[in-house]
Each structure stands twice: as structure tokens, then as C-alpha cells.
Design a protein around this nucleic acid. Sequence first.
RNA 1: GCCCCGUUCGUCUAGUGGCCUAGGACAUAGCCCUCUCAAGGCUAAAACACGGGUUCGAUUCCCGUACGGGGUACCA
Length: 498
Amino acid sequence: MTVRTRIAPSPTGDPHVGTAYIALFNYCFARKHGGQFLLRIEDTDRERSTPESEAMILDALRWLGLQWDEGPQVGGSCAPYRQSERGEIYRAHVERLLESGHAFRCFCTAERLDALRREQRAAGESVLGYDGRCASLLRDDCERRAAAGEPYTVRMTVPRDEQIVVHDLLRGPVSFEAQSVDMQVLMKADGMPTYHLANVVDDHLMGITHVIRGEEWIPSLPKHVLLYRYFGWEPPRFCHLPLLRNPDKSKLSKRKNPTSILFYRRMGYLPEALVNYLGRMAWSLPSDEEKFSLGEMVEHFDLDRISLGGPVFDPEKLTWLNGRWIREDLDVAEYARRVQEWALNRDYLMAIAPLTQQRVERFSELPALTSFFFSGLLDPTPQSLVAGKLGPDEVRRILDAFIVKLDAIMDWHAEPILAAAREVANEVGVKFKELLKPVYVAVTGRPAGVPLFDAMAILGKDLCRARIRHAREVLGAAAAPGDGPGGLDQEVPPPGSS
RNA sequence: GCCCCGUUCGUCUAGUGGCCUAGGACAUAGCCCUCUCAAGGCUAAAACACGGGUUCGAUUCCCGUACGGGGUACCA
């Protein structure tokens, strides 16, 4: 049996380092065993999935050297590899479950489900979840209501009084009480499958032998094995990797740490170094040598060498590793070429040129005017950030609000960024012109220069976010005791990568 | 609340019952090298969460506790 693994990102945002981390382990495992590594796009969430995000994720994985054998842009015998294009397949499989009585139509409204959850929580019930009301509906009635156009979802049934035991390659047997498993929705009212259904159907149809994914999926393991059983399929082997963490040990999130691969590229990290560092997360070479190439990782890859404690993603150590790659693996010519490729390339220079041409009288003025385009985090002083008419508190509120607004921008161009800034000025109740001053310093490190929003568009969302957040921290530290940075730490799960 | 997973220096890790006086690395501090700064070299401080078993012997195996994390959606 040929080993087949996959990375199944959902295109709902920037390419996440967590996705690359999971992809890396899948890639290494497949390569090590002479198998194939597939890429599948899990875009069943119509609200949040975008083609731009998908393109960035594919580009980022390629940049890291994690080329897939089958998937979008490559093709393969199991095409299509985009779930939004596999609707017929899921519908047919849902039909099978409906026929066999392993699934039922549910006509409950979102309101009722919300109320149900609230009641269950208030009553302190030990098991939360769907109460099974529609499970007992008569089949004919259901079909009639469905045919009449009443919206419905399809849920899976769950057995009672059973221990569901699943073997995880790293943890051994993991067991669950069947009655604690929710009657999961398999097909949403819009006709799209949920992750649980699509994932099982696709993994089977695509011949996936080993599902290597994040630990966050362990709780839904029983649903998945139940589905394999209902379909009469042999389940793949499961292996759940520990999650990458923030310094406070919570799941890695962009609020607390830059998580976009684009950010690391923009900061001047080498793909070799980033892959190497991700390979050091929860894994080690038998020799314990810290610096290794993707090829070396493949050669020595062994799931048994994975440690289960969730590793904290440490940019400082990544930086040290990157330094080693720069000075040990590039000759001078290659080093120069990489630098050129990084930011001294024609595209980047052409983006910057129109902003500077009217503002210089000699080329030698260029470095000072544009240095922030080639920098990482800046070091604005508290004084420079509050140099305008606004007080520190207002500046704090501006920066906090701006970060939130920026996060919501999908279409990263000057106009939406400008619009966001105007909204923030309104909300905080300051003049737009006054708002501009601290933001300008936070993003460029200087009080004035090239047009701000064009510059931000070029810099990219992550670097802007990181700089503004850094400026916010600078201000927080300068504040009175007890007035530390606040309002920044609301947790939002990063896009999952399964 | 309930379910599941985890726990070696601040951080990444080595360690699969005796080789452990627990090793390496990042970060920190000191020294050396040196035209500056890096890099490099040397040194220092720094960990087996706790309590019970099992065993001649537990960092390593089992149980419990504590702590951390994840899940609990018509998101993945």
C-alpha cells in the first residue's frame, strides 16, 4: 500500500505558519515512505473562503518547497481537489447515509438551536449538543417538507452505550463515550457539506492512508470513525500533532504573534530557515543537530521522534537559525542574489518609485525616505507617537481600533485602508488629520514622508499590524502603572489546517 | 460545566528502567578574540509539576492530583 498524506487548508485568510507546519510533517512522512503528498482545498465555508487566500496559500507552500504531488494547479487522478467543486459527490454520499438510516434531515432553525444550547448550559447539563428532535421525524414527512422547499440540514446519527476507541499513532488508544458525541451536521442548509463529511469522503476517495493533522481535531475523531463505519470503509491511520503555541501557551494566533508566512517572507527570512524551524517544532533529528534541510528531514523522518508538548513558536530562535542559513549556506553571490530577490527586485522598486519621484531631488535622499520599506519592526519612541495634539490615551485607542479594522480588510489596497482610518477617526472622535500623525509614526517610524496608505498597501497587512501593535506596546509601557496594553488579546482561532 | 490531549532549564529539545553528577541549542550574564559591530570560542546561572505505586533501581512504566491546552458551530 502506498502511503498517501494530505494538507487540507481552508482558504479563509493569509497563509498560516500552522498550515505550513502540518504540511511539512505530511510532506516528510509521504516522501520518507515513497508515497504521495496531496493538497486539497477545503472551501466549504462560502462566507469566508476566497480565491485570493487560496492563491496565497499555494504560493506560500511552494515558496517553502512543500510541493504537492496532486492537487490544484497540478492535477491528479482524484480531481477536482477543491471541495466547492465536489458537491455532487457529497450529495450522493449524504443520500447513502439517509438511505441507510445513519443520517436524518433536521428542520430546526438556528434560533431554536441557539436557545437549546443556552438552556443546556444554564441547566448545567453535562452533555451539550443537539437533542435529537428531528431524528424521530417520519421519513415521508421529511421528504415532503424538503420537496416543499423548507430549509434543512442533514445530521448524522450516533449510537448509544458504546465506547468508541480510536488509535492515534502518537498517543495510542483514545476513547470516547458515544453518547457524548454530538449529532453533527453533515450537510448545511446551503447544500455544502461540513468539514466532517467532506473530509471523510475525500480522504477515502483520494486514498489517504495517514491523516496527519493538528491536535484540535482529536475531539471530532469519534464522528469521523463513525462515518467511516457507516460507509463501510476502512479508516485511515490517525496522527495528531501538537499545536503551535503563543508565548502564553495558547494556540498560536495572529493577535499575539505574527502568523502569516507572508510576514516572515517580508521580514527577510529564508524559506530554508522557516521550514527548518518548523521542523524543529515538536521534532528533532536523531543527532539533535538543529540545522537541517528539508531533504535531511525527509531522510530521517520518523513519527516516533515527535514530542507531544505543544511547542511555543519563538521568533528569536527562528531569527538565530535564519542567521546561520545566511552565513553558512550562501556564498556571497548567492547572498546578493537573495537580497535582490527579496526586496531589491523590479516589482518592489516599481511599487515604491511612484511614491518617491516627486519627493526627491537627488537619488541619495532615497535611503532615508524609504528605509521603512526595507525594515522589520520599527522603534518609535513614546514621545514621537504622541507628538501631535492628541493625548496618549487617544493614541492608544486609535491604534487599538485601527488594528481591529485592518484585520477585517480582505482586499488589501490603499482605499480600504484609508476608509478604515476614517472610520477609526470617527469612532474615537478625533480629526482625521490628527489621527494620521501617530499612525504615520507607528508604520513608518518617521513623522512624514511618502503617502501613508499607499505605503501600507505595499508593506502588507501583517507587517503593518506588527508595527502598529509594537507601537501600541511602546505606549503601553510608558503609561501609568495598571494601565497596561488591553483590548488586544481577544482570542480568535486562526484558520485551521487539517 | 462536560469531553479529550498534554507536562524535562524562561523557550526549543536529547533522553524509551541503570550510561543522568539530566546533555545540546536560543535567550541572559561574564570573559577571550578583535580597527568598530557582528560572527566565533570559553564560562556561569537555569529543568525531570506534585503524591502514591510497580521494580533491586525510576526523568523513563501505572494510578491520582495540580497546572496548561484543545474541543464543545449549519468554521475549518
